[in-house]
């Protein structure tokens, strides 16, 4: 059963700028893996609740208390681009 994959859209959603050739290559590999993965659909799961998490835990909270923050210079020292106390990025949209 071939699986319908809009690989261009998927790559765009994932923000990975692949070439047409790369896209075709990944699409092919995803096909193979997804056909295997699609076997999960063969299993009758009516009435089965999904498990999002292996722990049957609820209500893990923290009190509303202020804790130590990071040193700004230490944080900004890792930035690929900065300006003064800010992280700098290219413009958000082109025309």
């Amino acid at each position: 059963m071939p699986i319908d994959i809009d690989i261009t859209k998927v790559a765009r959603l994932a923000r990975i700028g692949l070439t047409a050739e790369e896209l075709a290559h990944y699409e092919e590999q995803l096909q193979v893996i997804l056909e295997h993965a699609a076997r999960v659909q063969a299993l009758p799961t009516e009435g089965v609740a999904p498990t999002a998490h292996p722990l049957p835990m609820v209500n893990a909270f923290r009190p509303d208390e202020v804790e130590q923050t990071l040193d700004r210079e230490e944080v900004l020292s890792q930035a690929p681009d900065r300006e003064g106390p800010y992280f700098r990025v290219p413009p958000f949209l082109d025309e």
Binding site: L34, A37, A38, V40, Q41, L43, T45, V48, A49, P50, T51, A52
Partner: peptide
């Protein structure tokens, strides 16, 4: 896919 996989997990 994802939803069904979570049921398989159960």
């Amino acid at each position: 896919f994802y939803g069904q996989a979570q049921k398989v997990r159960t």
